[in-house]
């Protein structure tokens, strides 16, 4: 049995925020700003809960001796960084160094891996999903890539670089993206209304 109080509170807060969005009257906007500030504070607290949750999972793995080293490294780096940020503030040189020397290079390395993963996925696409759409998808991707970079010894390819690529990006791609975004917007409204009406209750019990 889900609590009617939680449902009523969620519906009331959703309604106030919605009214504040459509009718910028001081009474609504004031309440809306206050509620959104509370939501941000709660999201910050939830971030800490997320850290605890992540630690619980890795602690369980350490105790079960599954991927001992990996989990120990995750735990140690998570809490040492947290402690350092608390002690020296997030803007401190030490935290900036951690960010620039560890997080950015690791993310860039994974980004490099992503390029290979995508290329591999593209090569496998005709076998995985044979058909005209796969051919169209691949040929468009190749044409856009050819039009975006200067080839060694050849420079920018004529027609592909200055006419075809901009046309592909500005006409069919933009039209398709707008169509998709309209569908997504309608889906977002439907999801929001289901929560506002109490039909979907992601806040559980």
């Amino acid at each position: 049995m889900k609590s009617p109080l939680a449902t009523a509170a969620a519906m009331a807060v959703g309604l106030v925020v919605l009214l504040g969005y459509f009718f910028p009257l001081p009474v609504f906007t004031g309440l809306r700003t206050l509620l959104l500030q509370w939501a941000l504070i709660l999201a910050g607290t939830a971030l800490f809960v997320g850290m605890v949750n992540l630690s619980q999972y890795h602690w369980a793995k350490i105790r079960a001796r599954r991927n001992l080293v990996g989990s120990a490294v995750v735990m140690a780096s998570l809490w040492l960084t947290f402690a350092l940020a608390l002690y020296a503030s997030p803007e401190s040189a030490a935290i900036q160094w951690l960010f620039n020397a560890i997080i950015i290079p690791t993310s860039v390395a994974l980004l490099g891996l992503l390029a290979f993963t995508l290329a591999y996925a593209a090569v496998r696409l005709p076998r995985r999903r044979p058909g005209i759409m796969a051919v169209l998808f691949l040929s468009t991707a190749v044409l856009v890539m050819l039009g975006a970079v200067a080839l060694p010894g050849m420079g920018m390819l004529p027609f592909i670089g200055d006419t075809l690529r901009p046309w592909l990006a500005q006409v069919p791609a933009a039209a398709g993206a707008r169509g998709i975004l309209l569908g997504v917007a309608l889906g977002t409204v439907a999801t929001g209304l289901r929560i506002l009406l109490g039909s979907d209750r992601p806040y559980g019990e």
Partner: peptide
Amino acid sequence: TGPLGILAR
């Protein structure tokens, strides 16, 4: 994210 983790649980 933390909030989604809480909602998942």
